[in-house]
Design a protein around this nucleic acid. Structure first.
Length: 315
DNA sequence: AATGAAGGCAACCGCAGAAGG
DNA sequence: GCCTTCTGCGGTTGCCTTCAT
């Protein structure tokens, strides 16, 4: 589109601004307004291109700029707007007085995005990640563990049986992961259920604040790995459009993230592990689909028994 | 105390749309 | 309608600081 960069002219300074340059720019704009950015540097006595001056002014020198840490409210706003608008930083910035698009973009890239990824959410869609095959080794290892536990249960004198309660509790976590992956496959291949993950997560929000409902997906951080616990769920509509219409409704991943922040960056533990061990079919939640005995249902890959480090770490 | 890695942030680059002649 | 100029935006880079070993 036809315009060469304004900074092509040789001899113009680049890089960090000095206090003297800041002073010149600030003084000029306060006195004359910025007018044409193209001509401003010459008039202000700066050896910079207009673009550089504009950036410096809008991102740093503007008097209404708010500096310092983002508040919880600001984080919520960013998360919510990003779930609707995507990387429209300038549009997001219009809802955050005193914050620049550059600042919001940096904050997103260095904090919020990473946190969402750590929690297993796709930062672009704010939905659970669907890269199922990256978790395949863990799922295979799960099959191995289940087999070991089945053997221990069958032979109470075996050494493995001595640790049965805790092993069974751990198995609950892993089976949640397995179920989550299976759900992911179902939802990504079945066009008829596009919002299933979101719905499940919405239910998970409730689980963070109380009794987990049927249909919850709750990521747990345990033994150094992140595990997602998904139960079966119904299928109410929960679209981004609906979010927009409701105005103040937040994306489920956003709420999850904020809930975790408020809890000190750690998600709540699974319900009492000893109970889960005593009742292996009820590990994820009171209404878990595993409660019907599916905890012992055949696994998809019973023939694999790798020596997966995941299991080593986990046990 | 030294050094390398990671995090955080300011600034730059290039593209695209708007505005004006 | 076309061309040029200006402005705004999003992605990326590179430097500085902090943290970990």
């Amino acid at each position: 589109m036809g315009r060469s960069p304004c900074c092509d002219e040789s001899g113009l300074k680049k890089g960090p601004w000095t206090p003297e340059e800041d002073e010149k720019l600030l003084h000029y704009i306060q006195k004359n307004g910025h007018g044409s950015w193209r001509t401003l540097p010459r008039l202000a006595g700066l050896n910079r291109c207009g673009k550089s001056c504009r950036l410096r002014w809008t991102n740093y020198l503007r008097p209404d700029i708010k500096r310092g840490k983002f508040s919880q409210e600001e984080e919520q706003t960013i998360l919510h707007l990003h779930s609707i608008l995507g990387n429209k930083w300038s549009a997001i910035a219009t809802h955050l007085p005193g914050r620049t698009d550059n600042e919001i973009k940096n904050f997103w890239n260095t904090h919020l995005k990473k946190r969402l990824i750590q929690m297993g959410f796709d930062p672009m869609t704010h939905r659970p990640r669907t890269d199922f095959f990256t978790a395949l080794p863990q799922l295979i290892a799960l099959a191995t563990l289940r087999d070991h536990l089945a053997a221990a249960a069958a032979d109470p004198t075996a050494a493995a049986a001595q640790t049965w309660p805790s092993q069974a509790a751990k198995l609950q976590y892993l089976q949640c992961l397995l179920q989550s992956a299976a759900t992911t496959i179902a939802t990504t291949t079945a066009a008829a259920a596009p919002d299933a993950d979101e719905t499940a997560l919405g239910a998970a929000i409730s689980s963070l604040h109380g009794t987990p409902p049927a249909g919850s997906t709750v990521p747990f951080s345990t033994a150094g790995v992140q595990v997602s616990c998904t139960t079966t769920f119904e299928e109410p509509a929960c679209s981004e459009l609906a979010n927009q219409q409701q105005g103040l409704s937040y994306g489920v991943a956003d709420e999850m993230l904020l809930a975790c922040q408020q809890g000190g960056d750690t998600l709540p533990p699974l319900t009492d592990l000893s109970d889960a061990a005593n009742n292996p079919g009820d590990g994820c939640s009171a209404s878990s689909s595993f409660g019907d005995g599916s905890a012992s249902s055949p696994l998809p890959w019973p023939e694999f028994f790798p020596d997966d480090p995941f299991i080593t770490d986990f046990l």
